[in-house]
């Protein structure tokens, strides 16, 4: 690092420019990661909060993927699934979209009919709706009393309110169920067999995310943009260090002639890249964290260790990879060129 640190000071303008580019790329990657995570939570946090590991949906016709919005199961499916070997318990699940009115406030909500602890005229709502316990609200034409406030989850970007399944049937004006929550035994039968025996499709909670409308497409698009940004970052860092290494060629030849090993030059060059990357990415991530904390008051945005540290680590990793490919040229510098007037 002897030469590396002095080069950083000497050519600080060039390295500051590269650091600024890396910083901006990191800012974008961290912001997109927070947004992806936030949008994902807005789509499926209610599914990830379901009380069971598995959920059964109506098997879709043909080769199409299952969807909560299209799933409709007869009520007796709960009993048929509960009777299957490997199933410890089966509970009805109803999901629909409705409108909640409390006084002069109205909000679109997703209604989950899963909470058997609630009475037929009760509803549990999230904090974000700003409704106090005991308040009377109208939900899908039903007058209900807020029994509890909490459990901030959402489904398809709408806040989730919980009712008993009987209340949900009235709100959704539906005789059928959306799905069945399954609690399997410790040594369960193959979920696919359970599904085949009952005309359903048994999914894990994580697999069920893709059955939420738009979730897979939304996450796929944002992930693709992040991956492209990471590739561009590697290319930018690689291109910079390729040019930089070529410019340093004569100096490196002199140092090689003085007896520096290839490993010494490689460590020095990679150390230089690591310093620039670390400073650039940490600055970018810090700025993105600040912006994210402001942005999450208006848009679904998650700021936590995963959404900051993972993209930060990825940026450093791909940057070092790009730099490593570029600076490997230092090992091929011919010390013989230090002699004569070739410089």
């Amino acid at each position: 690092m002897f030469i590396a640190l002095r080069d950083l000071r000497f050519a600080r303008g060039r390295f500051a420019l590269l650091g600024a580019v890396i910083s901006l790329m990191t800012l974008m990657v961290v912001l997109l990661t927070g947004l992806t995570s936030g949008l994902g939570a807005a789509s499926v946090s209610a599914i990830s909060a379901l009380p069971t590991e598995h959920v059964a949906l109506a098997a879709p016709p043909g080769q199409t993927d299952p969807q909560f919005a299209l799933s409709a199961l007869p009520v007796d499916t709960v009993d048929r699934l509960g009777a299957q070997p490997g199933v410890r318990a089966a509970r009805p699940l109803g999901i629909s979209t409705s409108r909640l009115t409390a006084g002069d406030k109205t909000a679109p909500v997703s209604v989950f009919g899963t909470d058997s602890s609630l009475l037929p005229d009760q509803v549990r709502v999230p904090d974000s709706l700003g409704v106090a316990p005991g308040t009377e609200v109208e939900l899908g034409g039903q007058r209900l009393t807020v029994a509890a406030v909490g459990d901030e989850t959402s489904f398809s970007h709408l806040p989730v309110v919980h009712t008993a399944i009987g209340t949900w049937h009235k709100i959704a004006r539906s005789e059928s169920l959306t799905g069945v929550l399954l609690e399997l035994t410790a040594d369960p039968a193959d979920p696919a067999d359970i599904g085949a025996a009952t005309g359903t499709l048994v999914l894990t909670r994580e697999d069920a995310y893709d059955a939420v409308g738009g979730y897979a497409a939304e996450q796929g698009s944002l992930t693709m943009i992040r991956v492209l940004l990471l590739i561009v970052s590697a290319l930018v860092v690689g291109a910079f260090f390729t040019v930089w290494t070529m410019q340093r060629g004569p100096d490196l030849a002199v140092v090689r002639a003085m007896g520096a090993s290839r490993g010494y030059l490689l460590r020095d060059a990679l150390g230089q890249a690591a310093v620039v990357l670390a400073l650039g990415t940490v600055t970018g991530a810090a700025a993105a964290t600040g912006l994210g904390l402001l942005a999450r008051q208006a848009v679904p945005f998650v700021v936590d260790g995963g959404t900051v540290l993972i993209p930060l680590t990825l940026m450093i990793t791909v940057g070092i990879s790009g730099a490593a490919i570029a600076v490997r040229r230092v090992t091929t510098v011919d010390p013989l060129t230090a002699l004569g007037a070739s410089r």
Binding site: D251, A257, A338
Partner: peptide
Amino acid sequence: FVFQQSNLLASL
């Protein structure tokens, strides 16, 4: 080694 035109490193 003492090189022609000294060949010093510019940043040092």
